[in-house]
């Protein structure tokens, strides 16, 4: 599973794309839990969103390695 990282997420993970080999990640919620365990700084930011196939996802949405997944930190355009 490859995860695109932007903004502060890119700095926390220290790369543009995070590769995860973990068969237990089946939902957005699983991914959040994984990120918070591996990178404790994520738990400081409550408003991180996850996008699946370029659409904001719900925690209950299922994900697989075929999906385009991205971590969306709090946005600040404009």
């Amino acid at each position: 599973m490859r995860i695109k990282c932007f903004g502060i997420a890119k700095e926390i993970i220290n790369q543009n794309t995070l590769s995860i080999e973990d068969d237990t990640i089946l939902s957005v919620q699983d991914l959040r839990r994984y990120l918070e365990n591996q990178y404790p700084r994520f738990s400081q930011y409550k408003s991180f969103m996850i996008a699946v196939n370029q659409t904001f996802a719900l925690d209950t949405d299922q994900i697989s390695s075929d999906d385009e997944i991205a971590i969306i930190p709090p946005v600040s355009g404009g």
Partner: peptide, 28 residues
């Protein structure tokens, strides 16, 4: 449009100050 852009569109700004930089809205 500008209100929605600021709320929901995945664009991020990094602010550079005299003594450092940070991603806006991403201070814990």
């Amino acid at each position: 449009i500008i209100d929605q852009l600021k709320l929901n569109v995945p664009i991020w700004k990094k602010e550079y100050l005299m003594d450092g930089s940070h991603w806006v809205n991403a201070r814990p």
